[in-house]
Design a protein around this nucleic acid. Structure first.
Lengths: 253, 253
DNA sequence: CGCTTACTTGACATTGGTCAATTATGGTGG
DNA sequence: CCACCATAATTGACCAATGTCAAGTAAGCG
């Protein structure tokens, strides 16, 4: 509920050739032409502070981003202040694709930690579709994957009870974090508050707290100093009755 | 919860040149080359009965579909039988894109009414990306739109109460139905049972019934003979605190 | 030290769930 | 046309999960 909107454009940025995401086995690699295009597609880097809003629902952004480091989240709000967190954004994730395609952002994005993003020119997107079938395919794949994650969340919020939902969410975030660990920070902690958990799961903070306390007392997670660490993936998986999808090669741009 | 899996392939089908979807202003139209490709892309038509399952979670389908007429829905289930309906499928909607791209279906699809679908060859999808940037763009757009709808549903299930959720859902379906009215059936009724509403909103059938009764008593909807009709769009819109998106031109394949 | 933000906890209120019985409604075979 | 059956919708009584309120405590920071 912070109103802070903040961000600065770095003038000197990491060249795509040395993109930090390349190191990760989970990402597919580009061929020369693709890399060449992506280099031209990228027009800068954007740094935003923890708590700042990167994109706002209803805005028309000229940009598209890929997160290089840090954590963020997508959310929507109702007029009276109720907030629903839709999904989290981790390194390698694209930000603003929906808004770029449909003209207007249908959700907002906020930084959970300091974030560094690649900035792409919306204008060049048509060139991407015209000349790079493989990248076009990747974009569609990325959108389909987001859909698939939202399906899971909806299943969770609609059908699972508080304990199951919490177990699902933390396991989900933990798995995602592990896949890009070094880019997130040196440790494996999940940088969210209980308010974020509550707003993601559709629960009140109070009930969220009581539920998380149960997970702690069963030694499935730790929650210390505003950070959450997962201690027992299997335990969470059993409670949630959910197994994370097998990590196949995934694209990024 | 029916186990029926049923479908027959029609041998003689509507040629794309006379695609019934063309008549609708909401759909963008193809140029000659695109139409030519889509004709080759389409390999048949599939008819399925009410209640039959078209695609099953976990399956690897060789096909991709576009719904020509009828209603269906996408859903996921938990082991113990709890079911979450994720979204509804109306004429012009694509079925199975996520599964085609990611290899395995992450949800199932069931027919609410008899459905007629175009069948496309998954194999030819790479040709689509290679040679038809405009259609590739359309596919990405379609995926982004589905994401955007899921965002709305998640907001609803996570934050709105029973009455608000019901109002939102019925208004949502009503608007979608109106946009393709003639292909759905001659009337504007929504062909779902209260069990479907319950499984979409994450409520029990009993509570759903009590909630719908309120909407009926306020003259916002009618619910007769297993069919729902919306009587007061504005009334529903006010309760849900939601306005349907403005209908812009949308693609189909 | 005094803020501010996050987290905790208990008491109580309410929404929505469960159970169980009853009433439509539509389709079927005789 | 009727008896019968299955599915869907209704309703009331009672219960449980989760929300709200209020009053703490803990930790981080200028």
């Amino acid at each position: 509920m912070t109103g802070k909107t903040n961000g600065k454009v770095k003038t000197a940025w990491t060249p795509c050739t040395r993109c930090p995401l390349k190191k990760f086995e989970i990402f597919r690699s580009f061929d020369e032409k693709e890399l060449d295009f992506v280099k031209r597609f990228k027009t800068g880097e954007l740094i935003s502070d923890r708590g700042s809003t990167v994109l706002v629902e209803g805005s028309h952004s000229a940009h598209l981003y890929t997160l290089l480091s840090g954590w963020g989240f997508r959310y929507k709000m109702l007029d009276d202040g109720r907030r629903q967190i839709l999904n989290y954004v981790l390194p390698g994730d694209m930000i603003g694709l929906q808004g770029t395609l449909m003209g207007e952002m249908q959700h907002s994005i906020e930084a959970l930690t300091p974030m560094i993003m690649c900035v792409f020119e919306r204008e060049r997107l048509s060139e991407l579709f015209r000349s790079f079938p493989s990248l076009s395919y990747d974009l569609t794949w990325i959108a389909a994957r987001e859909e698939s994650i939202l399906d899971e969340h909806l299943l969770s919020v609609g059908q699972r009870n508080a304990l199951e939902r919490s177990a699902y969410l933390l396991l989900f975030l933990h798995k995602r974090a592990k896949a890009v660990r070094a880019l997130v920070s040196s440790n494996t902690a999940i940088p969210i508050t209980q308010q974020h958990v509550a707003d993601t799961l559709g629960l009140s903070v109070v009930h969220t707290n009581k539920t998380l306390r149960k997970l702690v007392s069963r030694d499935l997670i730790e929650w210390t100093g505003g950070q959450c660490k997962v201690r027992d993936e299997n335990g969470l998986s059993t409670i949630a009755n959910w197994a994370p999808p097998s990590t196949t090669d995934r694209p990024y741009i």
